[in-house]
Amino acid sequence: MEEFLSGCRRSLPIALGYFPVSFSFGVFVASSGLPLGLATLISITNLTSSGQFAGVSLMLVQASYMETALTLLMINARYFLMSLSLSQKIDQKMSTLERMVISFGITDETFSLASLEQQTLSFPFMAGFILIPIIGWTSGTLAGETLTNLLPASLQSAMGLALYGMFLAIIIPASSKSRAIGEVVVLAAVLSTLMYVFPLFQGLSNGFQLIIATLLAALYGAWRYPVEEKE
């Protein structure tokens, strides 16, 4: 129980950051004329940002199921890497069912924060750790689709920065402590910006751009600054 609560506490910032993003997703779906409740259903079953926006855009043009499946798979391929990485960090005694439960909650944000935890990740910790972001994401969407005009537009758009602020609070202190991490962070930022700017990469989905920037930067780190051997 203690571990469960500690998981809840550790992921609270993620849930708060999710609220405005999922709020805007709710507004987007409701304002595109889709039935009320659909946005919340999508959020509680998908728990992802770019994939949901892409999926709804496809819905609106009556895309085929195959087209939707392939697009979503491309955008979400990055979760494969994150899931593999977490498989090394979790309690090895976790059962198959427990693994299937916690893997539902893997997002860019929960993955990153969970990976940076010091200790091995137990099932109760991870259960709490994914529960709060799921609540934040779903309730934000529900609020967005029902109360589309609750917040002034300027405040709503400013709140879109909350998640990025949180990311800065993680990568900047880590970079100033470790030169290796600093170089990886700068390289990932540069690669991601280059792919955003150059038309050559515009055909790639956001998810794929993220994988390429991440892998190249992490490969550089692993090649240039290998971590200490475990005993």
């Binding site: 940076l116 990311f167 993680i170 930022a189 991601s192 751009q209 920037a213 992490a218």
Partner: peptide, 14 residues
């Protein structure tokens, strides 16, 4: 080890 930092940075910028 480096993947989480790289992901967060690539998500943030630009």
């Amino acid at each position: 080890y480096y993947v989480p930092y790289a992901v967060l940075s690539a998500l943030t910028f630009p």
